[in-house]
């Protein structure tokens, strides 16, 4: 199933990060142009007077991180993780297993350590694992990811405050900015990302419209 979805997912992700700059959301005050590897700050959104529109725009900015292959690869919509900027299926063949940590003999931590192994290029961070299937992001739009992230049934029972804390400080989330070897990091820094997510929550945690893209 996810193999069939993969081309769409890849097209979607590239649409989000492929251009030289990330464009401003339509119908709002033009946002500062930034390079693909840079994140805007909450102050860049202050000119959007309508609170709901500002909140949606902040989530779209966050989605430049959330939809990056570095994040999406371990949020598969099937039972196999992805890897690389082309989101190929994980090789060696690893599967989700009953608790998202792999299966006996092929646990995530059979190979992945608590930090990147630079000489062997094996990526690592504390509590390396797949996101539960309820948190699948492969093939999902920013709108869908936003709705999932706010839904305690699908976000691990987290409050919005806990979501901010998780995104701002969790070590496995933080791996996205320090992926090691020659891997492309997600845009900005974890601190900047945490600030964007916090500003999104403070402005009412509105979700972008269904077709909206950053």
């Amino acid at each position: 199933m996810h193999q069939r979805l993969l081309p769409f997912a890849v097209a979607f992700v590239f649409a989000g990060c492929g251009g030289p700059t990330a464009d401003a959301p339509k119908g709002s005050t033009a946002l500062r142009k930034v390079a693909p590897g840079e994140l805007r700050t909450p102050a860049d959104f202050a000119g959007i007077e309508d609170t709901r529109a500002r909140s949606s725009a902040l989530f779209l900015e966050a989605s430049r991180v959330l939809t990056h292959p570095r994040c999406v690869n371990c949020h598969p919509n099937g039972d196999i993780p992805h890897q690389g900027m082309n989101m190929q299926l994980h090789d060696p063949p690893a599967v989700r297993g009953p608790d998202n940590h792999g299966v006996v003999g092929m646990e995530c931590t059979s190979c992945h350590q608590d930090r990147n192994q630079e000489l062997t290029r094996v990526p690592g961070a504390p509590h390396w694992a797949l996101a539960p299937i309820q948190m699948a992001w492969v093939g999902k739009s920013p709108h869908e990811i936003c709705e999932q992230m706010k839904d305690p049934k699908r976000n691990g029972g987290k409050s919005l405050a806990a979501i901010v804390e998780h995104n701002a400080h969790d070590a496995l989330v933080g791996w996205g900015w320090h992926p090691g070897a020659d891997r492309e990091p997600v845009p900005g820094t974890q601190e900047q990302f945490g600030a964007i997510v916090a500003a999104w929550v403070e402005s009412g945690a509105a979700c972008p419209a269904k077709g909206a893209r950053p």
Binding site: S110, C111, T120
Partner: peptide
């Protein structure tokens, strides 16, 4: 008791 790959395990 858990399987690990010794070549990448510090």
């Amino acid at each position: 008791g858990q399987v690990v790959r010794a070549c990448v395990t510090p």
